[in-house]
């Protein structure tokens, strides 16, 4: 369960971006996570409120985009999907493949509030 550490690192990044852009608070965060990154989206969601408490991102929503595993075959050149524990070419079944997607653990988007809502 290293997802709490990952969330704390995420909040650190988000707060840096928020401060650099003069944010009052963070409204929404989007991250991209692949199965080969070693983190679980569900566990990140559970850990997130704990890491976000008391920060600029306390009330931000977290959207996790899951990135499917894709491999490129060194033999036939095909680019196909693959399972994390079966990284073989979907076209010719060769195991000499390069992973081209699925390792991501990236912060991709931060939505910030720069001015308060008008009071009616």
């Amino acid at each position: 369960m290293h997802e709490l550490s990952v969330c704390q690192a995420l909040i650190g990044q988000v707060e840096r971006v928020a401060r650099e852009n003069g944010a009052r608070s963070v409204v929404a965060i989007t991250i991209a996570v692949g199965p080969l990154s070693g983190v679980e989206a569900g566990l990140l969601e559970h850990a997130y409120p704990v890491a976000a408490a008391g920060t600029l991102a306390e009330h931000a929503t977290l959207t996790i985009e899951t990135v499917p595993v894709r491999v490129r075959c060194r033999s036939c050149g095909a680019e196909t999907g693959a399972q994390p524990n079966r990284l073989v070419c979907g076209a010719c079944d060769d195991w000499q493949v390069d992973v081209i997607a699925g390792e991501e653990m990236l912060l991709t988007r931060v939505e910030i509030e720069t001015e308060p809502a008008p009071v009616h």
Partner: peptide
Amino acid sequence: LAAAPSVPGKTETIEVITAI
């Protein structure tokens, strides 16, 4: 997980791609 507590004011979206 949870909705923001109130309607936000002026917002801005920042595209950043950095490793978490």
